[in-house]
């Protein structure tokens, strides 16, 4: 290694060690991309060809037939729709609640500031399986009014509930996501808001603004970068949730795509080529988000792990 001190010269001459380093990194990248590339490759091959010439073989036909079959047979569009119905309100509500708490605990001095913050943060770190048994019972015994539904195609999205319970309802999944993820968002946003001087709040109060207005008009706009990062991250996490909807949803066709995968293997993904197509389809939305919003993504993660 020659000169490349941080902040120093950008492109160092290619010394043997550099070559070695790049060689190592390129090899690792190859290793890293391979499973995904293999999934894409398998998904584009018809099953008959894999059977005939083995799964490790040069391609004869490459087409989208597996995707078309999976898309139609497994009714994938509806599962994406289920995901959207859960994730959009989920992300919005988690961010609203978290920003409100973070605002209250950072801009004002309360006796219980630290405890509130700890309860939220620790709650988010618990393994979900620790709370699932009582939560499951709670969902089965919480009455929720059924207020009709919005119908899209053959699917029907109940407003609040279609069985008078929290169990087996979109709203139930949204609720647990919001509460669980509020923990993480609160932690991140409170770290962020600590850097905002209390002067702002104080002077606004003196000017006669009420607390709600200060949160909405003064503090939230300042938090836009953090909110954008968190929204990206939370979208991905809620999209990727497998457990909550697996347990708290009864009807398989109400499950978001990630949880629905569990029952698609064997039933619709009748061979590995179709399994590959299903996996790729399920992976596309978060990968798109990642490609478009990589910066937000990484910032969201690091905001959470490091202080401020």
């Amino acid at each position: 290694m020659t000169v490349a001190l941080p902040g120093g010269i950008v492109s160092a001459p290619l010394s043997p060690r550099r070559v070695l380093l790049h060689g190592f990194l390129i090899a690792m990248c190859g290793l890293w991309l391979f499973p995904l590339a293999w999934a894409v490759y398998s998904s584009l091959r018809p099953f008959s060809e894999t059977i005939h010439s083995g799964s490790v073989s040069l391609p004869g036909t490459l087409d989208l037939s597996n995707y078309i079959t999976v898309w139609n047979d497994a009714e994938l569009p509806y599962y994406y729709l289920n995901t959207l119905v859960v994730v959009i309100p989920g992300v919005a509500l988690a961010l609203i609640l978290a920003s409100v708490i973070a605002f209250a605990v950072t801009q004002f001095s309360w006796r219980f500031n630290l405890i509130v913050l700890m309860l939220f943060t620790a709650g988010n770190l618990l393994p979900p399986q620790v709370i699932i048994i009582p939560l499951y019972w709670l969902y089965l015994h919480t009455p929720i009014p059924s207020l009709g539904s919005i119908d899209i195609g053959t699917f029907s999205f109940a407003i609040f509930s279609d069985n008078d319970l929290l169990y087996d309802q979109y709203i139930g999944i949204i609720l647990i996501h919001v509460v669980f993820q509020t923990g993480f968002c609160t932690f991140v946003l409170s770290n962020y808001m600590k850097t905002i001087s209390r002067e702002l709040t104080e002077s606004a109060l003196v000017d006669g603004a009420n607390v709600f207005h200060i949160w909405w008009r003064v503090i939230l706009p300042l938090c836009r970068p953090a909110l954008a990062a968190l929204a990206t991250l939370e979208f991905t996490w809620m999209y990727n949730d497998f457990f909550w909807a697996l347990i708290l949803m009864f009807h398989g066709d109400k499950r978001p795509i990630t949880s629905a995968l569990n029952n698609m293997q064997g039933q619709f993904f009748t061979n590995y080529n179709m399994l590959a197509a299903g996996a790729v389809l399920a992976a596309i939305p978060p990968i798109l988000v990642f490609i478009l919003l990589q910066k937000q993504f990484v910032r969201g993660l690091t905001l959470g792990a490091t202080k401020g």
Binding site: L93, I144, P145, S146, F160, D164
Partner: peptide, 22 residues
Amino acid sequence: DMLKIGGAMSLAAFIAACGGSA
């Protein structure tokens, strides 16, 4: 408005502890 409505709806859902009429 969407955010407001979303918040109000989910709160109402949580608070409403009465069974729907079937």
